[in-house]
Amino acid sequence: MPKSITILLLSGSAENEDAEFATRLAEAALAKGHKVQMYLFGNAVNLSKKEVPIEGDLHIAPRLLEHIEPTKNFARIARLCEKGADISTCHTNEHARGIESREYVDGVKWGDVGGTFTKYLMVSDVLLSIGH
């Protein structure tokens, strides 16, 4: 029987593998027919914004770049939204990072813990917090 799963994600892409795990788990749950809601909290709000690449030489060694690029989760977040996941972000944590005005990854929505997150909870069978 399909369940409604809310994932509270607390980590961004760079500091550990929690974001990769959470987004892959969300993909798997969607593929099984479950409903997925994801609230990006703390450093996870960094996943909510489109990349702003610089122009020209990155000054990053190629092997380091090869190490970093696969850890990014922006594309998977957009793909999750396309597949029907409901993903929103904590605008207060965005504000704390000075990124509130930047453009969201396609499909990601503005949110707040008092409104968006608790609404997710009201229709959830499972709440899973991921991040450290």
Partner: peptide, 28 residues
């Protein structure tokens, strides 16, 4: 359906997660 939540805060003042814990508890 979720009606109740236990929120455990293990991080001290100065670590963002501790503020996220109290904010979540207050919101719930």
């Amino acid at each position: 359906m979720i009606n109740s939540a236990c929120l455990i805060v293990s991080k001290p003042l100065g670590v963002e997660a501790s503020a996220l814990g109290i904010r979540t508890a207050w919101a719930c």
